[in-house]
Write a protein that binds this DNA or RNA. Sequence first.
DNA 1: GCAAAAGTGTTATTCTTACACCCATGA
DNA 2: TCATGGGTGTAAGAATAACACTTTTGC
Lengths: 258, 258
Amino acid sequence: MATNDEHPASLVLAVSTVIFALRPSTRTGKMSLHIPVVRRIREPYEGLWALPGGPLGMQEDLGESARRHLLSTTHLDPTYLEQLYAFGDRDRSRTNGIARGDRVVSIVYWALVRSGPGAVEYSGIVRPADEVVPGDDNVVWIDADELPELAFDHTEIVAYALWRLRTKLEYSRIAHSFLGEMFTLAQLREVHEAVLRRELDPANFRRMIEATGSVEPTGTLLQGTPHRPPKLYRYVENPAESTPGQTPHPTPATKERS
Amino acid sequence: MATNDEHPASLVLAVSTVIFALRPSTRTGKMSLHIPVVRRIREPYEGLWALPGGPLGMQEDLGESARRHLLSTTHLDPTYLEQLYAFGDRDRSRTNGIARGDRVVSIVYWALVRSGPGAVEYSGIVRPADEVVPGDDNVVWIDADELPELAFDHTEIVAYALWRLRTKLEYSRIAHSFLGEMFTLAQLREVHEAVLRRELDPANFRRMIEATGSVEPTGTLLQGTPHRPPKLYRYVENPAESTPGQTPHPTPATKERS
DNA sequence: GCAAAAGTGTTATTCTTACACCCATGA
DNA sequence: TCATGGGTGTAAGAATAACACTTTTGC
């Protein structure tokens, strides 16, 4: 077997992102979490799929770097972006004890982007989330729960990001980031159901959401449905009249857009 | 005003740690959270207090690096160690727009160490947690809720670590990390009360702890108390008979040392 | 016996959860 | 009018919290 004493010459600091969007599963047809992966065109792990990312620019913040790589590979602007973890163990790019290139410390972010019927406004142009770079089949969206073999330790990274998203969805109010400016409670519930992979009681879901004070009715109704038109809601940033004992948690650098 | 266009020449990757111990407050006498800080002996921020840390070694994992710096400054071995956040914004070592040295990306950990009457076993020698390096007054333990001015962005980092510890204590089972191998429920409750800064009902606390299945009676009693001798408990790693639906959360690289 | 902490029991309250039921619309 | 999802009501069960009470020791 290969020796463990090979010393990488240099240390590279990279930023990668696990980008989540909701798309219909090609197997079941139900909405499920998908992530974009990029085909590696050089060693190590040439040919395998990897998370979008790249080296940190000297003049950019960590979150900026994540957003830049995200934009360049998916042409999307994230509605939610949060740091996940810094992966930097000495042998994380080794396979069977064989060193694969320089030592890389990856600061990984996770992001949510809009998808499906609710389209994305990006630099004035409305783009659907499933539009990949034209003519570029080096980026594909895959079901986050049915991953192929990924490069480096990216399989574990995605598993951790999935766990984080699912955990956070239950105590936080981030589901709206998958949707557009206005949405019905049924759409919001559909997001929760797709992420958590279980059905939720519509009545209790409504009360749970209303209790958080995270949404407010816009006053308009969604027309064109086959049945009773549902109210349209919008997300409210700071629910002032909510529970007084709420934690103003000093989470660093968590950014939301619209 | 200073220009924002100064380009740092190089990028340094460092590892720092917020180390928590419980010690009696010099003001109130009650147990409260304390952290060790190191006096900076060079620019930038010379003379100010800073978190223990230093550059990442090419041959060590991130957690290893945190543990190494922790040991060299406090002579303690942490009973709990977890990554907190990677701080790497471009201007995090600027003051009033003035650049202070090279750009540093800090991967920050937080740790718990034993203290007080429960001493620490380290390389066979029992040391109390309040023993600093002999003759070294460049390390002091300060109350985490009464910080002086710290170097860099370390004030915000400590605030975030404090929030993280207090949040995690309520849904996790880490309080025992402040104590020795065996402890009474009153001691465990004292830890919770000191960290959360509020009194807890002994009866409900007992039931809450028992419900988690995280401790078990050792069969021995603590003698020498002025009143009824309490049972001594020990921490159990994997409460197998606990709730079946527990999440096997894939948190990366969280290490505990009994 | 008395004081004080260890430990148990009991009840009120709030939070979930399940599900029955009414409402409003298109076809 | 009927089918269907939107939306409201209600009650059982579980988790939380407050506190009375019994137990066991040192003094």
